[in-house]
Design a protein around this nucleic acid. Structure first.
Lengths: 276, 276
DNA sequence: CGAGACGTTGATAGGACTCAAATGTGGTGG
DNA sequence: CCACCACATTTGAGTCCTATCAACGTCTCG
């Protein structure tokens, strides 16, 4: 039932084994990154794990805040309620992504998280983590970095979507997923959408019908091959230029000057990696 | 040149004097909230201040990260670049709001900040602040709360805007400003817009023309009186129901039957908890 | 006063939503 | 195994909203 894309252990940033933490494949976002063995053991002491079946809820809105969570495997969607009381998808979390940080301020969860597939998370009791942060400067620095990234994720992705056309929004969404899969050792061009069209639409501010039609158009153009929830990106150049709001001709034109091309690519990946 | 709405010192959450920090009118977001005098002195030791004229830049994109900033008075806009390289307004900061947190992760500013009027900020050297956080648990807790709030700010406001009509977006924006002025002791119904229509449009994902037309319509309905950048909210009920996506009739109707009104309110909050 | 930025107003076209219906899909129980 | 249902997704037709383009008023500042 789950897809079977192979992990590529050769990618940098991956560790094949972990001494203290249970073995897992988290990326550089993992809190234990850069800790000594001793520090790692201290961290491991407060961590536990939890498995969730598909559609199971990890935490609910307004639930008292106790733990932060890091995805070990699987995927989640987080959502809150807008002013009208309707569900608003806030993000999709995959391996290494942290959830629950929006609850630190109020001590109550401001959003809910549901597993999109069978998943497992690290459970980090925040009170104990906070104590540990004061003792381990490396950990503290890493934690602040994580929160900062979370702030950037919202900013860069969400705000700019507003002024964009449906195709452009979807292109950005797809490339973001692609980059995140790539960063985790999966194929950037072939992957599965774990979320429904409805969730995608909700996240992007489009109706289900619009999402469906956008996919149809991009399929017809030959840039994508999307069958049900299987995605294959056939023409990265075109999809990227669409995301940037350029026509394909403009994108090709800008590629002619090598320097500009590399600058553009670097910018793209910098921005994308900020989206996690 | 700056507006002269009177501060209301009677509002709770305000302190009339500060022992260590230079006297200022920050709200509960201020980092020094709840610190003892001794702790406050430690914090004050690393703080300096900086004045900026209107249109002056506080920090630029890609500038190396060194300091966090808290607005003491005045207002700022922060903006980044979207994938197309165009300016994207990320937020408007007023007294007590912190800026620069998005740079912690990468050590380079991901956005730029410009003063919308003559302003002053607290300058917090992050390296020294981080050391202090480990020593002062109260300060640490407060800092994490601040970052968490920043994460929420993006989520709640921005994501839900996407699926909304122009009038609804503007209503939410206006009510958000109103609430923020109120929290700082200013009138919630009369205030000045410190940002241009262009910036508002950029922030809300609308064109200048649309912003102008929305304001015109709300003026004609008698809900607002907006003259240039002076705003007066005349009918809060209507504006709020617009923000919630209800017609005024629906809002009034739901108020008529007390039970129903409370049921509606309760439903809203139940949904929050019921949605798994 | 004049230049330029800012803001408003009008006409038009196109894109996305809405409503409606058909089709595909997975899960359940007989 | 199949019938059946609930749900997800697609497709179509029509309408409304907002972007676009263009022109004009207004304010600011040198």
């Amino acid at each position: 039932m789950s897809s079977t894309f192979a992990i590529t252990p050769a990618l940098p940033g991956f560790r094949s084994a972990r001494t203290a933490c249970a073995p897992c494949w988290l990326n550089a976002q993992c809190l234990s990154e850069g800790l000594s063995d001793g520090e790692n053991r201290l961290l491991a002491r407060i961590i536990s794990y939890r498995r969730l079946a598909r559609d199971e809820s990890l935490f609910c809105m307004e639930e008292p805040f106790a733990n932060l969570f890091v995805v070990r495997f699987g995927q989640f969607k987080t959502f809150s309620l807008n002013l009208s009381g309707e569900q608003q998808v806030v993000g999709f979390q995959m391996t290494g992504d942290m959830m629950g940080m929006d609850a630190i301020g109020t001590q109550y969860h401001q959003s809910a998280a549901i597993a999109l597939e069978d998943s497992e998370v690290c459970v980090l009791p925040f009170a104990r983590l906070e104590t540990l942060l004061a003792e381990l400067p490396t950990l503290q620095r890493h934690f602040h970095r994580l929160m900062s990234h979370e702030i950037n994720r919202e900013q860069s992705a969400m705000l700019s979507l507003q002024s964009m056309r449906a195709e452009q929004r979807f292109a950005i969404f797809l490339l973001s997923l692609s980059a995140r899969y790539a960063a985790r050792g999966y194929s950037p061009s072939r992957f599965q959408l774990r979320m429904s069209r409805k969730d995608i639409g909700n996240y992007l501010g489009l109706t289900v019908e619009s999402v469906s039609r956008v996919i149809l158009r991009l399929n017809q153009k030959g840039w994508l091959r999307v069958v049900r929830r299987e995605v294959e990106i056939l023409d990265f150049v075109s999809v990227e230029s669409l995301a940037k709001g350029l026509t394909r001709a403009e994108a090709i034109g800008s590629c002619r000057l090598q320097a500009e091309h590399h600058a553009a690519l670097a910018m793209h990946f910098d921005l994308v990696s900020c989206l996690h």
